[in-house]
Design a binder for these strands. Structure first.
Lengths: 341, 341
DNA sequence: CTGAAAGCGCTTACAG
DNA sequence: CTGAAAGCGCTTACAG
């Protein structure tokens, strides 16, 4: 069963291969009747053009690359589904490149993929989205890229993101509306821009409601389950404890839940707990966690769309990168409730 | 910055492009001194061969496809990392194709990827690994594939898996060794072969220890958190309740944990709970879940290796598919303990 | 609206 | 051990 080429199709349709090419690429200036004849031949022969031939001749690979080193599989899965959903519409495919930010060969991996594969574009997710070495390598290779939820150098390239500060603000308001006054906050690692913005949102909401934030109510976490446990133990270890804890991500909030369980502090009757991210675990635990759902699928789909739509790859006519903010959603669940009187 | 081709490299090294090709493809019969000269030119020019040109001329794409519709992001992430780790060693890249088994266009998606991309091989994970339509499409396209943890038609194609029955057997023994006698089991959906094999392992261990399995101690679950909750409520709703529950996957075990928490049944003091899979949530909850870790990364790496190693793609000289069983690991954590006297 | 020619950057099959 | 030629299956640039 030798493979069908454009020549067979052209012959069967009684046209030149150039005309077949025109039809397949939806180029204008093909007589409708000719078009149909070609399409029938394509159908009859079950012809599928060779990507490598198209790539070589057209110097585009029909491949998008996704670089990621995000520790959350759920986050990555959503990004992938979002990116693929856009790719499918344009005959593109998604090549994944799991990387390790600590790997000294990171830049080489990026250059190999961008260079050898001739990727038509690259999607970047946190935290690798902020790695300057990677951005440099991509810039140097001339590979267009769109950043998903970047935290630094916002003017450097096109990106899609969400408003972390606003989401944290609304989550805080949610707790205050329940009647909480003494709310503790567990921050994320200093190098994560998102951690800062979430903390800012928390502070702004407290201030707007005229509530003071006690310094001992703010704890420095590391975005890990373990650090959530540690911070919670410090916060809950005395009789004078907060009635609510807002952790800057779900993993830490799950740690708070675990620590509370072990210390016999009942959630939500004695303590409300809120997280951020809406990981699968967030709804798998008891009580299910009130948290913020990021529009991850949508961000990835939009990012892929920016690359695929038009020759400007997410830049305006002047070549300046464009940006898009997408909506988050507050997931109110059983881990938050009014404080016990 | 026009792109560097094999011609530039050949010229700089003072050889023909064929010799450059030989060196890059590690073909024999190149004088050592020539080889070094070529390598130096490659280095100096920062040359990276065009995949599409190699593909077109050599009729291999250097692309492996991964088809999946597994609902567990953690599982998928491990599969991806495993497959990529093997790919990297051979200059291959991984194209992902998230699919939907219920999608009527499923076969078209498969054919498009296998046909247009000319994938050199495909990796399949549960449950799509058992979809006969997909297997048919791949067979018809002539694309070699390796199945990861298949549950049906074992002789149809090469596969990599683990011994579910044996793992469930050992988990049951773990519970019995702790002193449990009255152990309940929550099975998975009937169409999942793994669910059957795990149940068989449980039964075998009970039988080997001379313990009877009460019919009302076996509940039909659906591999979902929700079904775990429901089964647990039925099992724990009366005074006469089991001292241990072994769920056929983690999601259901997490449901058991949640139900127990809500019903005031203390784990592990009053109830031991065991799962299967070692999802991230398993170690994120309190108490952390005793479970079975599947060698997912290793299975995927081995599966990719079967495709990439040699021209036989996981088949022996006679063309018969080969199989590999990898080792699992029992993760003993705090959700299991001796029963209260 | 359609086509003949050239060429994308490699590998294959052959020669020597 | 090395190379000249042909060709992989398309698209580009140009003609008409």
């Amino acid at each position: 069963v030798s493979t069908i080429t454009i020549n067979e199709v052209a012959e069967r349709a009684g046209v030149s291969i150039k005309t077949v090419s025109r039809v397949l690429n939806r180029e204008p200036n093909v007589r409708e009747e000719t078009r149909e004849r070609v399409l029938m031949a394509v159908e009859a022969l079950d012809y599928r053009p060779s990507q490598s031939a198209r790539s070589l001749a057209g110097s585009r690979s029909f491949l998008l690359g996704l670089f990621f080193d995000n520790p959350s599989p759920a986050y990555v899965a959503d990004v992938q589904r979002g990116a693929v959903s856009t790719c499918r519409g344009s005959g593109y495919h998604l090549v994944i490149e799991p990387v390790d930010s600590a790997d000294p060969d990171l830049v080489r991996t990026v250059r190999r993929a961008a260079g050898a594969l001739r990727l038509d574009g690259v999607l970047l997710t946190p935290p690798v989205v902020d790695n300057p070495l990677v951005l440099d390598a991509l810039d140097q290779a001339g590979t267009p890229y769109v950043r998903i939820a970047p935290h630094r150098e916002f003017e450097r390239a096109p990106w899609v993101g969400m408003d972390d500060a606003r989401a944290a603000y609304e989550m805080t308001v949610h707790l205050l509306d329940l009647g909480h006054v003494d709310v503790a906050f567990i921050t994320g690692p200093a190098e994560h821009g998102a951690a800062h913005r979430r903390y800012d949102g928390f502070l702004a909401a407290m201030r707007d409601r005229g509530l003071a934030v006690r310094p001992d109510r703010v704890r420095q976490g590391a975005f890990s389950f373990r650090s959530g446990v540690d911070c919670a133990e410090a916060l809950l270890g005395t009789a004078d404890r907060p009635t609510a804890i807002f952790a800057a991500n779900d993993d830490m909030a799950l740690g708070v839940l675990a620590a509370a369980g072990r210390m016999g502090v009942c959630v939500p009757a004695e303590l409300s707990v809120a997280g951020f991210d809406d990981t699968p675990s967030a709804s798998a635990v008891w009580p299910p966690l009130t948290t913020v759902r990021q529009p991850i699928f949508e961000m990835a789909a939009a990012a892929a769309g920016m690359i695929l739509s038009g020759p400007d790859h997410g830049r305006d006519q002047a070549g300046r990168p464009t940006h898009r903010l997408l909506d988050f959603r507050l997931m109110s669940r059983a881990s938050t409730a009014p404080p016990r009187k």
